[in-house]
């Protein structure tokens, strides 16, 4: 009896690791935007929702191959991210920070309602079921393994882009000093737009990975959104490595907590842990000391 129990626990831990990979990807996009533009997109998960719908419609209704549907979704959501910045964030950049947070909350309502108007409240899925990887008594769905692996590759890509390319260096520089960088010839408006598009593209990629595992419906953003913010904040908003680690901590709470109790309790524990961490280290669990 005890042995079987442990196998299921191990399965929960491994699933938590895989979930952590996807969560880390979601958090990365949000974190990048926060680090560079100093804005929290409350509607980030709604962009993911639109990406999931895009894949769903292109694949099941229009019969396009899945990779094409993925590519279109990523580009579309990247475009949406840029549009969001241009139309909504840019006009309030000079106003109080909290307005920037709230204005994207308005976008959240808008997108959620728009999805309901356009697609109805039905739960939709791709109708694909990938097999599971079976190791002994442990079942790991391939969709999750694939998602976690893709997320890791994408994160590595973003990291290399930020470290090795000229544009990436410019983005990192502007996040360090908003006043000085324009004097060095960098155009903040252009870099902000580019960062928003990258952030949107990461949301689009997240959508592709999530639509393999979950049904899409207009309110799905509310189930991923809060957890993504918590991951970013706990990692230290704008701290990409911290967000990466925090994602795995959170995913373990949800997966293992859900294993011992009910899935909601996993989330409750993760949120309580988050609040606790905020009180002990307000700048985030993995923030560098000083500032």
């Amino acid at each position: 009896m005890a042995a079987i129990f442990d196998v299921f626990l191990l399965e929960a831990i491994l699933n938590g690791l895989l979930f952590g990979g996807v969560l880390a990807l979601l958090a990365l996009g949000l974190n990048l935007i926060f680090g560079v533009i100093d804005v929290v997109w409350i509607c980030y998960a709604e962009l993911i929702m639109l990406g999931m719908y895009t894949v769903y419609f292109l694949f099941t209704v229009y019969g396009l191959p899945l990779p094409v549907a993925f590519a279109v979704a990523i580009l579309l959501v990247a475009g949406l991210g840029a549009a969001l910045h241009w139309l909504v964030i840019r006009p309030v950049l000079a106003s109080e920070p909290i307005n920037q947070l709230l204005v994207t909350g308005g976008v959240l309502f808008f997108l959620q309602a728009a999805a309901t108007v356009a697609f109805g409240i039905d739960f939709r899925n791709l109708g694909l079921s990938l097999p599971s990887l079976v190791v002994g008594e442990i079942f790991l769905p391939w969709s999750r393994i694939l998602a976690a692996a893709t997320a890791l590759v994408a994160m590595l890509g973003v990291w290399l882009f930020l470290r090795r390319t000229f544009l990436g260096t410019a983005i990192r520089a502007i996040s360090q000093d908003r006043q000085i960088m324009p004097l060095m010839g960098a155009d903040p408006a252009r870099l902000y737009l580019l960062t928003s598009a990258i952030g949107g593209g990461l949301a689009g990629l997240g959508a592709c990975l999530l639509v393999l595992q979950y049904d899409v419906h207009p309110a799905i953003g509310l189930s991923f959104g809060p957890i993504t913010f918590m991951v970013c904040v706990m990692g230290g908003l704008g701290n990409l490595v911290g967000g990466f680690l925090a994602a795995f901590v959170f995913a373990q709470f949800i997966s293992v907590g859900g294993f011992f109790f009910h899935i909601e309790w996993g989330y409750v524990m993760a949120f309580v842990f988050f609040v606790g961490v905020m009180f002990m280290k307000p700048q985030g669990l993995f923030a560098a000391s000083g500032r």
Binding site: L101, M230, L237, F261, E264, F271, V275, M278, P282
Partner: peptide, 28 residues
Amino acid sequence: CFRFRITGHYFALVTLAATEIVRLVIVA
């Protein structure tokens, strides 16, 4: 929050977590 000067974005997000805790406990 106030003791450790959690303000602005951070305060908004901590309170957001708080409201989710209550909602999830109700559902659970």
